[in-house]
């Protein structure tokens, strides 16, 4: 059995062949398509079994066809009304947010946004926010708290942008401020990590009452490539790094850092975005119903308890 990463390359190659064959006519081509399709199915089944390794998940989380935040907003909400700007410096394309309706109820949705084509990628800065992005996110959350709207965040970023302007305008302060102030907001907050959870840049909008994570999303303190270059001084060990960093949804559930895993189709979210969004909707409906059912004080008490217990893995003597 080939390794999962190799399987993926094989599957891609086979899919390319099938596409080429579909352009041809005749029963021979048809037979060949069926045969290849069977192989693809077989390979995908093994590639999607429990042994799917950490690096495969990193690749799936970064898959170019994977739905991005605005795609999910389209599928999960109606009447999305985007709001712009942090009122201090500018409008960051890497963070989107605004009012929307979830099953008819008004909510506030905020998330990272990546771009598909080159122009969009530049506009979205590859999903890496500057300080104004985090300040916009918090401004919208505060607005939500003022008008008693639940907050849903959609998390998908390689990380906060490491640039000169970002440092000058206080990237660290912007993230730190969110980490301290978001817990005080008196409305339900449900973050969903659906793609890349890139360190502090992801965490800055991932604080909440119930944290959800898609099956193939990853959430890590450092990218496997950077980890590899620090520890091994090259990028060749990125697969090892992905494994030892424990960045998969199962790992995080085990550490009680996330509360629930949202299932994806066997080949990954990109294979069937509608089905992924449907699974997300089910989980979100349940979480919001549970959080709305308890009093605000009780919700805040539980939120603080949850935050206080985060990653308390220590030894005492």
């Amino acid at each position: 059995m080939p390794k999962p990463s190799e399987q993926k390359t094989i599957v891609q190659e086979l899919e390319k062949q099938i596409a080429e064959l579909k352009l041809q006519e005749g029963s021979v081509a048809q037979e060949e398509i069926t045969r290849l399709q069977e192989q693809v199915d077989l390979l995908q089944r093994s590639a999607t079994a429990e042994d799917k390794d950490a690096w495969t998940r990193v690749l799936l989380a970064r898959h170019p066809q994977r739905p991005y935040t605005l795609d999910y907003i389209q599928m999960l909400f109606t009447e999305f009304t985007e709001l712009h700007g942090d009122r201090r410096f500018g409008d960051d394309g890497a963070i989107v947010g605004g009012f929307a309706r979830f099953n008819g109820h008004p909510v506030m949705v905020v998330g990272h946004q990546k771009g598909r084509d080159t122009k969009q990628k530049l506009h979205r800065n590859f999903g890496m926010p500057n300080p104004e992005g985090y300040r916009k996110a918090f401004r919208l959350m505060q607005l939500a708290a003022k008008f008693n709207l639940p907050i849903i965040t959609l998390v998908d970023t390689p990380g906060a942008y490491p640039g000169i302007g970002a440092e000058e305008r206080g990237q660290a302060e912007a993230i730190a401020f969110n980490l301290k102030e978001i817990p005080k907001l008196r409305v339900p907050i449900v973050p969903i990590i659906h793609g890349e959870g890139g360190s502090g840049g992801a965490l800055a909008i991932s604080v909440g009452d119930r944290v959800l994570m898609l099956e193939n999303a990853v959430y890590s303190v450092i990218a496997p490539e950077s980890c590899s270059s620090i520890l091994w001084r090259d990028w060749e060990h990125k697969e090892d790094a992905a494994r030892i960093l424990k960045l998969t949804a199962e790992d995080l559930l085990g550490f009680k850092i996330i509360d629930e895993i949202v299932p994806e189709p066997p080949e990954g979210a990109h294979a069937d975005p509608q089905a992924t969004a449907a699974a997300m909707r089910t989980a979100l409906e349940r979480c919001l119903a549970e959080l709305e059912a308890i009093s605000c004080d009780e919700r805040l008490r539980r939120r603080n308890e949850r935050l206080r217990a985060l990653g308390t893995l220590v030894h005492e003597s």
Partner: peptide
């Protein structure tokens, strides 16, 4: 880095405190 995501959560825990 050697405590991975656990160490990232300390940012959140301390800030919330």
């Amino acid at each position: 880095m050697m405590e991975g995501i656990i160490s990232l959560m300390q940012l959140s825990k301390i800030s919330a405190a």
